[in-house]
Write a protein that binds this DNA or RNA. Structure first.
Lengths: 330, 330
DNA sequence: TTGAAAGCGCTAACAA
DNA sequence: TTGTTAGCGCTTTCAA
């Protein structure tokens, strides 16, 4: 059986109140008594039961993080940063993966709430007024990352649209006139939250229109994007830029093009988004957009904890710096 | 305020015992009463407080996983698998990262224990009798992965030594006689648990000795291994094989060699270990060892849960299949 | 400075 | 079939 406060109390011949005073550095205890208690604590190898403490305190010193999955390098890096920062502040971390399934996500959030986490870091698939009401009802501090929900929710991320716009502008300046854009299926638009993806697409279109590129880009929103690519003929005299909404797609495309013997960037240009860390092992160097994932994690945690401890968010929603990484692929 | 069992009881004009029977499908309740209660539950948006339940049940339906970090792709993949499987069984997951710091690891385990997790999946840095006693004292089901602690602890992983031996044998058969081995600093040997790394090294040495390679390999146990490599002269007529204890090192080495203009495998051979998923984007294809990370995660969770629920481990320690992936780098 | 007792929200054993 | 009550281990208030 585990040693409890009561055991310590009995062992020392004091009350449990006194033991608590010793354990938690509360005033109103004689130094000598305190020492006696603390010795007993060590001797009996007492360890507090956080479950019981949480019940009375109403706080668990636990955060929850809700992510899609950990296949994307960026997510893993983010999680790493979040864990670090959370425990630095004495908080433990629950992790819940939704696999982009809206119902699953709801269940995750519900479970986290039932486990009485003090706050949640949310990369949501869901969106919409109904969902916001749903979140509201938990009355738990929540900070959103990557996917913006609405002005009502604290958010840490980058200006996705502007970032993509900058990237595409760079490509246009290089003289490209034909564009292919590859992104995940956006068919859940309006239902599922694909804010990030929508914004990146908008960024592309904005840049094209502003710069007077009249030919509409070919937009491949398809999981079989490589198959779709097969239909495309590439020509040196009319160079095409393939823009991918994330590096993972760009890598797949790069592999595909290499296989086909299509030269990058001589015959076709390629751009990604994320600057995942493995890019440094690849040639040609992929042109991409970099943003500070770790910092997003740090800031999310710190902001959330401030909210938990002060009752309000001190930082409002934040847009962090992104950076165009000019490689050799375009 | 959150709705409690009492609130429901009052609202329905029944006792909290009855509410509990309705909520948890316990017998001894009239169907009609049950329906009435469940309706109220819905109407008042009641959600159970797991903290309170845990206190009385003595179980939290929570597992903890202790890892080094998430920078290695394999760890992220493992974690992903573990989360999936855990929640499939109704368990939530705490994640704690040690950054390979033995003291930090102890703190993690202690916190997990205090949070009353039902079981722990442990990739430990610590080892030794003292540590085992320390673990023992928590009397929490623990399953170890990657790093073996001792026969006293359930373990899921592969036969690291045999795997490396197979890899090196393959290299020897290709005619290589000079070997360089790159691995992390093993200076904590005896103190920190570097089982995996030790085993891989042993595998290398066993293969060399068995096959009668008399020249001792150059073993670089150094974080600055690229610097060390600079001192080495490569010669076509006396070809060297560089064996890395993990793919991450191999990628760094590959980059370095490319920079130096050293041809792989024409001038030097290279082998990794792990088969991380980004290898498929690289040329030349890296020869490496593959093992089923996800499966390790699944099995660890299932085995642990069985232990939790039955009181004993049904599977004893497991060695899963590994596979030599023959690439073009050696 | 200390002790006694109530109570956090839930479950489970016993009574009715 | 239902209600009552004790208690999980801790903190906190009030009284001594």
């Amino acid at each position: 059986m585990r040693v409890t406060v009561k055991d310590i109390a009995k062992y020392c011949g004091v009350s449990s109140g006194t033991v608590d005073r010793a354990l938690n550095n509360r005033p109103g205890i004689k130094l000598k008594t305190k020492q006696k208690v603390l010795e007993a604590v060590k001797k009996l190898n007492y360890r507090p039961d956080f479950t019981a403490r949480s019940l009375v305190k109403g706080r668990t010193m636990t955060l929850g993080i809700v992510l899609f999955d950990l296949y994307n390098r960026s997510f893993a890096q983010l999680l790493n940063a979040v864990e670090l920062k959370a425990r630095e502040h004495g908080y433990f971390l629950y992790i819940a993966l939704t696999d982009k399934d809206p119902e699953n996500e709801k269940q995750c959030i519900e479970y986290l709430a039932n486990h009485k986490v003090d706050g949640i870091i949310l990369f949501s698939v869901n969106q919409g007024i109904e969902f916001e009401q749903y979140l509201q009802d938990f009355s738990i501090p929540i900070i959103t990352i990557f996917n913006f929900i609405s002005e009502n929710w604290e958010y840490v991320g980058i200006q996705e649209r502007a970032a993509m716009r900058d990237g595409v502008n760079h490509i246009i300046e290089k003289g490209y006139k034909n564009f292919i854009y590859i992104c995940p299926p956006l068919k859940h638009m309006g239902k599922a939250n694909i804010y990030t993806q929508e914004e990146r697409l908008k960024g592309l279109l904005e840049a094209l229109h502003t710069k007077g590129i009249n030919d509409e880009p070919l937009i491949i929103k398809h999981n079989d994007y490589l198959k779709e690519l097969q239909k495309v003929k590439f020509a040196k005299d009319n160079k095409t830029a393939i823009v991918c909404s994330c590096d993972l797609y760009a890598l797949e495309v790069m592999n595909y093009l290499k296989q086909k013997g299509v030269k990058i960037p001589e015959e076709v240009g390629l751009m990604g988004f994320d600057n995942i860390d493995v890019l440094k092992y690849l040639t040609p160097k992929l042109t991409t957009i970099e943003y500070p994932v770790e910092e997003i994690g740090f800031i999310a945690v710190e902001s959330l904890i401030k909210k938990i401890e002060n009752g309000y968010f001190t930082d409002t929603s934040l847009s962090l710096e992104y950076k165009l990484i000019v490689g050799e692929s375009i």
